[in-house]
């Protein structure tokens, strides 16, 4: 437990500072020193810096509990959720940078939400019931319990953007939908309530911005803070889409 740790290291946090709204600003690294506390997370550390040292430092936290996906940033070179990164797992020198790929708002804050909305619109990430209506007064349709669990499993994505930021393909090709998008397609394909067929899904991800653009770099799989089975799902989707694209 946190209380048994009695380290009082001096942490040096090297944060990337840049305000794209200011015409004359250039990116630079600013170093903040602070004393480590037991059980300290990067959320606690950054909040303290903002309160006591530099009120202008920009970053995003919402839930501070690892569930909302707001606080993705590059932590010592790897994308991760800052709020659930405990400083004691890191060296005393910690470098922080905003997630690449996404539009930079300022310092450590990026606009993942805007990109995710665009991705959702493009891939139509919702259940398409194809006009089937539901009588809300009647007992709901049954669903296999194991299948429901599987769908939930893929629904756990928090749209943090870590997978996209870690993906070399996405970095090179801006229109790539990323592992987050592909996982969502796999999720809706699995869901019996979504009446779309593989032909429909092919229209959405059957090209080099979709599943065929993925070069299986698997960084997405390795960094995903929710441990989603991205490798398996992308492979699965690829098989289905190749089948769809090569038949008939």
């Amino acid at each position: 437990m946190a209380e048994t740790s009695n380290s009082h290291r001096k942490l040096r946090i090297h944060a990337l500072r840049y305000n794209p709204a200011k015409a004359d600003d250039t990116p630079r690294i600013q170093t903040y020193e602070l004393e480590e506390a037991p059980g300290m997370t990067l959320f606690i550390a950054l909040s303290e810096i903002r309160e006591k040292q530099d009120p202008s430092l920009q970053f995003d936290f919402v839930c501070r509990a690892g569930i909302c996906g707001s606080c993705g940033m590059m932590i010592n070179g790897l994308p991760g959720l800052a709020c659930r990164t405990v400083t004691k797992d890191l060296p005393a020198d910690i470098s922080l940078a905003p997630l690449p790929f996404f539009e930079l708002i300022g310092d450590l804050s990026v606009n993942t939400g805007k990109w995710m909305r665009g991705m959702s619109e493009k891939l139509e990430t919702w259940v398409h019931s194809m006009g089937q209506s539901t009588d809300l007064k009647r007992i709901e349709e049954a669903m296999d319990p194991a299948l429901a669990e599987e769908v939930y499993e893929l629904d756990r994505c928090i749209e943090c953007g870590c997978c996209v930021a870690s993906c070399g393909t996405a970095r090179m090709r801006k229109d790539f939908v990323g592992a987050v998008g592909l996982n969502k397609m796999a999720r809706f394909r699995l869901d019996p309530r979504d009446k779309r067929t593989d032909a429909d899904f092919y229209e959405l991800v059957g090209d080099d911005n979709g599943v065929f653009g993925c070069m299986s770099l698997l960084a997405c799989h390795d960094v995903c803070p929710k441990n989603l089975p991205l490798q398996t799902q992308i492979a699965f989707l690829r098989r289905k889409m190749v089948l769809q694209g090569t038949k008939g």
């Binding site: 919702w126 259940v127 019931s129 539901t134 809300l136 007064k137 009647r138 709901e140 349709e141 049954a142 669903m143 296999d144 319990p145 429901a148 669990e149 769908v151 939930y152 629904d155 809706f188 869901d191 309530r193 979504d194």
Partner: peptide, 19 residues
């Protein structure tokens, strides 16, 4: 409330199911 849960079920919420 029951209507709300059922609407959400139709919209895609992966509710845990009875075995």
């Amino acid at each position: 409330a029951p209507k709300a849960v059922r609407e959400l079920a139709a919209w895609g919420v992966p509710w845990s199911r009875v075995r």
